[in-house]
Design a binder for these strands. Structure first.
Ligand code: MN
Ligand code: MN
Ligand code: ZN
Ligand code: ZN
Lengths: 155, 155
DNA sequence: AGCCAGTTGCAAACGGTTTGCAACTGGGTG
DNA sequence: CACCCAGTTGCAAACCGTTTGCAACTGGCT
């Protein structure tokens, strides 16, 4: 038996096919343009959340405008194809999300070199349920990121 | 016997004396000025994190400049008298921290009306320790906030 | 009373993000 | 396959929270 994870995140299917991504776009009546294909291609090959500027930097220069990336990420987020993360440094980060996955998961970030580790653990459901009930809230979810010193930066 | 909380936050001592706060400033060789006293007075009476703009709005108009508030909060944070929180809306929020307390705690925020509830629960230490060990990180801590619909907004 | 490091107001700069607009194009229609 | 237009793009300007340079001011010590 394999260790089973209580949530199935995007970690399960490493890379999504570009074709699957574009068909998902087409299905939503969105156009497959040069910039969009390029952005998806970059996200597809990157395992951790990327800022708009980082995506921009990876693009062959002149490929597309920064504003276009902002607009693309907004759209992809609305379609649920991308998940937004916040490492508290003032820049949004985005990660591709598998189809049918809500992308909810967490990270461990080095406060010195910014190395990122994907974390499988989540805040215990039972405690969250208690917090929600105690306060009469519904639809409760959480934002959670871990910070510390990575092995390299401890030396 | 009273229900004991595993961490001792600022929730224990409801309001700190203004005198205690100013003496804490003096001890650090900081000047007690009009703006600073006014800011502390506002924080002292507010149970939840406030943005700089919110503090500014509560100040008798003309009392002090917005930039002064930004500078004051930076200083207070550095002295550990105030804790910074991030509800993901792009504006930092600050809450007064009791002496000897690091202020670590969490909130439950209504996504519709922005009501805030102080939360006593924390991410389980044992799981956090495991996450740190597994990845060789040290000094691991976390940022965690809950979001949902408050009782009022469900109607 | 006098001094000076620390503090303040003001305005400009900053960095991430959004937006108005006119030119352009993907992809369905006939 | 040519046409057409809603959707998309680049560019520049606007935005918004935050920081900073600077000259005037002041709390608290001698
Ligand atoms: Mn991730
Ligand atoms: Mn709080
Ligand atoms: Zn989680
Ligand atoms: Zn915690």
């Amino acid at each position: 038996m394999k260790t089973s994870c209580q949530h199935r995140h995007r970690h399960s299917h490493k890379k999504q096919e570009l074709a699957a991504l574009t068909s998902r776009l087409r299905r939503e009546a969105r156009k497959i343009t040069g910039p969009r294909a390029a952005i998806l291609e970059i996200l597809r090959h990157h395992p951790h959340p990327l800022t708009n500027k980082e995506i921009f930097a990876q693009l062959p220069k002149g490929e597309c405008d920064l504003a276009t990336i902002y607009r693309a990420m907004q759209m992809l987020e609305k379609l649920g194809m991308v998940k937004r993360f916040d490492f508290g440094d003032g820049a949004a980060r985005f990660e591709l999300v598998g189809e049918g996955d809500d992308g909810h998961h967490h990270h461990l970030v080095c406060t010195r070199c910014a190395e990122v580790v994907e974390i499988a653990e989540c805040f215990p459901e039972e405690i969250e349920r208690r917090i929600a009930n105690t306060n009469g809230f519904t639809g409760v979810t959480h934002r959670l990121e871990f910070f510390g010193l990575c092995p390299e930066c401890q030396k």
